[in-house]
């Protein structure tokens, strides 16, 4: 297939809170389907999007599906470049300890378990966006 020869850098830019609108959930659905295409995939979380990675989420009070556990599966889909904007975290009083511990097994390093999340400054996030071929913004 022609598709298999092209490897592009895909960035999924997540800007919205996990609940309140459907963007976060449907973004994750694209990421999971997209993983089958063997592209170079990164995820970035900025603005209220950082809440998508918050640990101990509960949707009991709002009658919606809690899909936060799906983020934990990303490592198994070889989606392990997850970047979080530091300014967005600071503005919301969050630190990396408030986020889920997302990891992946590095097949080039005897399947050692490694963290998937990196906290980047806004400048670094900008640079990351600059180097992408495709940015899907949600």
């Amino acid at each position: 297939m022609e598709d298999e020869e092209v490897i592009k850098k895909f960035l999924y830019l997540n800007r919205k809170a996990p609940y309140g609108s459907i963007y976060a959930l449907e973004s994750l659905e694209v990421v999971l389907i997209g993983a089958a295409f063997d592209q170079n995939v990164s995820l970035a979380f900025i603005d209220d999007g950082v809440y998508q990675l918050k640990k101990d989420q509960s949707t009991d009070g709002i009658g919606m599906k809690n899909f936060s556990s799906t983020y934990r599966a990303l490592g198994d889909y070889d989606v392990n470049k997850i970047y979080v904007d530091k300014d967005s975290m600071d503005e919301r009083g969050l630190t990396i300890d408030d986020l889920m511990n997302l990891t992946y097994e590095d097949e080039d390093d005897d399947y050692a378990e490694k963290p998937s999340i990196s906290i980047l400054t806004s400048e670094k996030i900008s640079a990351l966006m600059e180097e992408q071929d495709v940015i899907l913004s949600f």
Binding site: D3, F10, G34, A36, F37, D133, V134
Partner: peptide
Amino acid sequence: GLGQLIEAGIQSERLVVFG
């Protein structure tokens, strides 16, 4: 399916998102 979106990203020179 959503694969059609990913394919559009791969095959197009620019993917423009309106949202």
